[in-house]
Write a protein that binds this DNA or RNA. Structure first.
Lengths: 113, 113
DNA sequence: CCGTATCCCTTAGGATACTG
DNA sequence: CAGTATCCTAAGGGATACGG
């Protein structure tokens, strides 16, 4: 599961669903840069893991809702801790990087690690 | 930074360093499956971000110690929450996956999502 | 609207060999 | 021991087009 969080989109989808129920297109619009393909894959994996519940209404045009399960909510709360840490230390990390780059050449457009 | 956690080795290195100071080879042995190359890259990135401190002793053979900085320790504590969640829900996720696979064919060696 | 199916390119990252 | 350098593949994921 830890490696599942490493696919870059899962965390964003969970965070977004933590704000409430979303339709497919709502998720797509709420998460800048995600492709239709990756949104489909990500939601499907989350459903498979029992973290998200999918509800399809047989209307025309079709409507599909995604919502976190109880387990999904608990994951969202845990992720919250990570997001908070990230926000609180973003500036300090930026400073550390700048300092490191100064101390180790990397003058301008060198390849970053 | 969140995407940095997505490279699969960073979390493992931080967790290992949370247990105490380690030399290069100690980390390599403690983290099964990591290649020398990825350990080098991961530690270097962590140093650049100000999460890990590297100390080299000019002995023969050389000795290099890695230890978490204060910021690295605080990250380790946050990661701890994630690790705990993962441990606590591993079984439930496995059950959800099995159930999902039963309900959606996937009889045997089909490609998993 | 809600997907699935292809194509295709970039990147992560393993294997291996070599230095100080 | 602690790396660096090079090669090479497998997978992630974007773009596009199409189906229900």
């Amino acid at each position: 599961m830890l490696d599942r969080l490493g696919d870059r989109w899962t965390v964003l989808v969970v965070v977004q669903l933590a704000k409430g129920v979303h339709r497919f297109r709502e998720l797509e619009r709420a998460i800048p840069g995600i492709s239709q393909r990756m949104l489909t894959l990500t939601t499907k994996r989350l459903c498979r893991d029992g973290l998200v519940e999918r509800t399809a209404y047989p209307t025309v045009p079709p409507q599909v809702d995604y919502r976190l399960t109880a387990m999904g909510v608990s994951l969202a709360e845990t992720i919250r801790g990570l997001a908070d840490w990230s926000r609180d230390h973003k500036a300090a990390i930026a400073v550390a990087r700048t300092r490191w780059d100064l101390d180790h050449d990397v003058p301008d457009a060198e390849q970053q690690i």
